[in-house]
């Protein structure tokens, strides 16, 4: 339904804002827990969801051409590979020590 509109309504924007605030609170709460190896993974996962919400609603990606989402997806995939490959090194190094 919303795909037909390019102007996002106030209510949606407020819900997005609430979601971002909640996710920020979760980030802070999780940081207090000792998740060891998962600390960075969880923080990055929450940050990714937040960035996704901002991109989709505030930057209107949800209402734009699919090709832009595909390009962005490829970029995110490359970026994800950087992180995964770097952490392959770190996780095995930690275990070895």
């Amino acid at each position: 339904m919303e795909k037909n509109h390019h102007i996002v309504g106030y209510i949606t924007n407020i819900w997005v804002w609430v979601a971002l605030v909640v996710l920020t609170i979760i980030t802070i709460t999780v940081a207090e827990l000792d998740l060891q190896m998962l600390t960075v993974t969880v923080a990055l996962a929450i940050a990714t969801v937040k960035a996704g919400v901002v991109l989709a609603y505030f930057m209107h990606l949800k209402f734009d051409k699919i090709i832009l989402t595909i390009f962005l997806g490829i970029v995110l995939l490359v970026f994800l590979s950087f992180i995964v490959l770097t952490f392959v090194d770190y996780s095995f190094r930690t275990t070895a020590i």
């Binding site: 490359v78 950087f82 490959l85 392959v88 090194d89 770190y90 996780s91 095995f92 190094r93």
Partner: peptide, 17 residues
């Protein structure tokens, strides 16, 4: 994009990497 680690083979990087 995914081959950068070959500059670091003797740097102390982990074996599997």
């Amino acid at each position: 994009y995914f081959v950068w680690g070959h500059h670091m083979f003797t740097s102390g990087m982990s074996g599997p990497a």
